[in-house]
């Protein structure tokens, strides 16, 4: 059911005693996520929303057998916390924080690769498998519905917009993954697409990309060999060159990362590219109609 997480996933929350950590732990629990433990160094022995808090990841994993981690720690502390989770063998490790220093992002990605762990983020809303009641991160739970559409995106609120429209059109989701808005992130579009390709529950994929980098072009290359329909939406058609559009990674620089380059690559690979956000759900419905 879905990819990366399901109803068996036992979640550890790092930074659980902070304002965001505590709030989203409550939200994840309400969604049905199995949050088994939390960690905040120096706050061991407390409870947050009934979840026991430990000083170290090692102690929390020993006691509760957590399998995955969600990090609600500020960007400057993300490197240490992510290394701690990866060292304990957790996967996926979801780094929510924005403003993680780029060099720290490189280190985290290298360590995740060395440990063979799935790293989601930094600068992500997380991921959700609705049928498994598994939500690791911050998206509003009410927008999801179990179903057959896999969603992978760089942007959070744009994902919510599109997922809510899918749900309204009775197109439920297998898994929704936010890969993150930073220049260097863990799992890429291609790696998520590979998992959707192998996932029987996923019958169509929505890819929500934006300007900057080459992740969409690489996804297009992979899409050529994929037998499931993909619908894409790309943000940033009207964005100027050389300006960072909110996300660290959303910038057209040195002639790379333009909207047109991405659109052309995806369309050449047979991906249907919606030119407006509300066209995504109808295109998915049409694709599934044709496919099934």
């Amino acid at each position: 059911m879905g990819i990366l997480v399901d109803e068996r996933t036992k979640v550890l929350v790092q930074g659980i005693t902070g304002r965001q950590g505590a709030f989203h732990t409550q939200q994840m629990l309400e969604f049905g996520t199995r949050v088994v433990a939390g960690v905040t160094p120096g706050r061991g022995g407390r409870e947050v929303a009934g979840v026991p808090v430990y000083d170290t990841v090692e102690a929390a994993v020993d006691k509760h057998g957590a399998t995955a981690a969600v990090l609600f720690v500020p960007g400057a502390l993300a490197r240490d916390a992510a290394f701690e989770a990866l060292d304990a063998g957790l996967s996926p490790v979801v780094v929510i924080a924005e403003h993680v220093p780029l060099q720290d992002g490189l280190d985290i990605a290298a360590f995740a690769a060395a440990r063979g762990a799935a790293l989601i983020g930094p600068n992500t809303y997380g991921l959700c498998t609705p049928a498994g009641r598994a939500k690791l991160g911050i998206p509003p739970g009410r927008i999801f519905r179990p179903g057959r559409v896999g969603v992978v995106a760089r942007s959070g609120t744009l994902s919510y917009e599109i997922v809510a429209a899918l749900t309204e059109a009775d197109l439920g989701q297998s898994t929704v993954v936010g890969v993150g808005g930073d220049r260097v992130v863990g799992m890429s579009f291609v790696e998520v697409l590979k998992r959707f390709a192998k996932d029987d529950e996923t019958q169509a994929v929505v890819l929500v990309g934006e300007i900057g980098g080459t992740a969409e072009e690489e996804a297009a290359e992979f899409a050529k060999g994929l037998d499931k329909p993909i619908v894409a939406y790309l943000a940033g058609a009207a964005a100027p060159q050389g300006k960072r559009m909110g996300h660290a990674g959303a910038i057209i620089e040195r002639g790379r990362g333009s909207f047109e380059s991405k659109r052309q690559a995806l369309e050449a690979a047979g991906v249907r590219v919606a030119s407006l956000p509300w066209e995504v759900a109808p295109l998915v419905a049409a694709a599934l109609g044709r496919a099934g």
């Binding site: 942007s155 934006e210 943000a235 940033g236 009207a238 559009m245 996300h247």
Partner: peptide, 29 residues
Amino acid sequence: ANGAGITMATIDVLQRCGGRAMNFLDAGG
């Protein structure tokens, strides 16, 4: 708008509707 992606999308949509955005402002989630 709130969120980088939706702010970019809003600017794109304005352009498609024949308008032009003065700015990008992500008020954050």
